[in-house]
Structures are given as C-alpha cells and as structure tokens.
C-alpha cells in the first residue's frame, strides 16, 4: 500500500516559539497512525499545518502525491482530508440531523446548489451514520444539548458523511468516560476497517493509542522524537523521558 500523507521537513514558528521544527512523517494508506507527545509539543500545530489553517514556514506536505501545503482549508477538505477538533466543534443550535446534512458537501457551491433542496437520500444516509455512532434516538435534539462524549461521536459522524479518504482526529477520547471510550475505539477501528479510511490520531490516553495504532510518532518540543510500533514506543527511553522528565 502506498503513502497517503507525507509530511516533509516542516517548520512552523510563531514568533520565537518553534512549534514545529523539521518534522517529517509518513502515513500509509489504510492504516491507523498515532501522534503522541507532551502538552505543547506541536501536535495540533502540525494538524493545522496539514489541513491548511495556517501556512507553513518551510517544507512540504503531500496528500496522495499532491502538494497541499499552500492550499486553503476548503480545497484540502475537497481532496478528502478532514479533521476533527480537540474541543468539539458542532453546530449547537441545529439538531443532529441538520448537523449531518450541513456537513455533507455538494461537489461545488454554485448558486444552483446553494438553493437546492436537501436531497432525501442524504437524510437517510445521515440517519444511518447516526445509528452507527449510536445517536439515532437523539437525532431531533439540538446538538448543544448532547453530552460532551456524544458531541464527539456526532463530530465523527459529521466527518464520515463526506466519505473522506483520511481523517485527522485531535484527541477523540479526551474528557470522555471510560465506558464510552471503548465505544469510540470500537467505532474508530470499524471506520478504518469497514470504510477504509486512514486515520491519524492525536491521543494522550496511552491505553487507547496502544490498542488502536499500528504505528506511532512521538513529538517533543516541536521535533520528531521517535517513531515505531506501539511496542517500540512503549519501551523507548526518550519517549518515557519526554513524558515523565529525565531522571
């Protein structure tokens, strides 16, 4: 299987803060890859760089062999590369179904599409995806009234309706109770296996990332510290030092 996402020597500075320095990583198509690191190590900055929230200072990013580092967010999204956020971002005053419908993007925002009725099969598709994440019952409630964990699930479903090729997930299990975490892991594996979507996951919960990812990259102080299988990372002294401090 080929490389779907290639980050090549990316630099991103905010004033004097070196958020990302010479970061390179590859993600294979169809895999689940973890991205870990202490707080402030530049994980979310890297996500922002990849999807085009801000321009990078140096280096290049390839998605399916195409240079995307200078593309704006909508253009990247159109290629099939979507992200979710650490703090859930849902449309809180719309109900779950509407949240799903608005997320499904037509090919182009032409005036004709803008004023087109929402097609019926889309509602059906939304309901199926809500069933998949276990929110079907609450489909008519406002998204803002859901619990935090349910909002995360909703956000996942919203990303899935566009049938992306790859998803960047920013801490999908942060702030969620342990029972629901298992549910989310289960869903993520299904997303990967059944829908064939490549996942790049930022995660602090080691149990989650070790059971989920096939390969893990570890960032510290904006630099790539280590990469390897979960076993290798678990036993890597540099990683342990970075998390717990050098002894």
């Amino acid at each position: 299987m080929g490389i779907i996402l290639e980050v090549d020597q990316v630099y991103k500075h905010f004033g004097g803060v070196k958020a990302n320095e010479n970061v390179s990583l590859n993600v294979e198509e169809g895999s689940i890859v973890g991205l870990i690191g202490p707080n402030g190590s530049g994980k979310t900055t890297l996500f922002n760089s990849i999807v085009g929230t801000h321009p990078i200072d140096q280096g290049s990013i390839y998605f399916e062999g195409k240079e995307i580092s200078s593309l704006p967010i909508p253009a990247v999204a159109k290629l099939g590369l979507l992200r979710t956020f650490q703090q859930t971002r849902i449309y809180e005053k719309l109900n779950c179904i509407q949240n799903m419908l608005v997320s499904s993007k037509p090919e182009n925002d032409t005036v004709f599409n803008i004023f087109a009725k929402v097609p019926h099969n889309l509602t059906e598709k939304s309901e199926n995806l809500l069933k998949f994440v276990g929110l079907y019952q609450k489909r008519n409630l406002r998204a803002g009234d859901l619990s935090f964990g349910q909002q995360k699930l909703l956000e996942l479903a919203m990303a899935l309706i566009n049938e992306p090729k790859m998803l960047l997930l920013d801490e999908p299990t942060a702030g969620i109770n342990p029972t629901l975490i298992n549910g989310i892991i289960d869903r993520l594996i299904k997303v990967n296996k059944e829908f064939g979507i490549t996942l790049l996951v930022i995660e602090h919960n080691m149990r989650v990332i070790m059971s989920l990812a096939q390969k893990i990259f570890c960032l510290a102080h904006g630099q790539l510290l280590a990469e390897g299988s979960p076993e290798q990372i678990k036993n890597d002294h540099r990683v342990i030092d970075a998390y717990l401090g050098v002894q």
């Binding site: 999807v51 929230t53 967010i73 909508p74 990247v76 999204a77 159109k78 979507l82 992200r83 956020f85 971002r89 849902i90 449309y91 809180e92 005053k93 719309l94 509407q98 419908l101 608005v102 997320s103 993007k105 037509p106 925002d109 599409n113 803008i114 004023f115 087109a116 009725k117 929402v118 919203m158 990303a159 566009n162």
Partner: peptide
C-alpha cells in the same frame, strides 16, 4: 428550507468548523 438555510445556521453556530468542512 434549502441548503442555504442550513449553511447560514452553521455559520452562526461555528464558522470555523463550517470552513474546515470545506464550505465556502
């Protein structure tokens, strides 16, 4: 009742998200 209505509501609730989802 069209997509327009949904999207402007989405812009009200979270414009960054709407943009990240690829909406112009």
């Amino acid at each position: 009742q069209t997509r327009f209505g949904l999207v402007i509501n989405a812009i009200r609730d979270n414009e960054d998200k709407a943009e990240a989802m690829g909406i112009h």
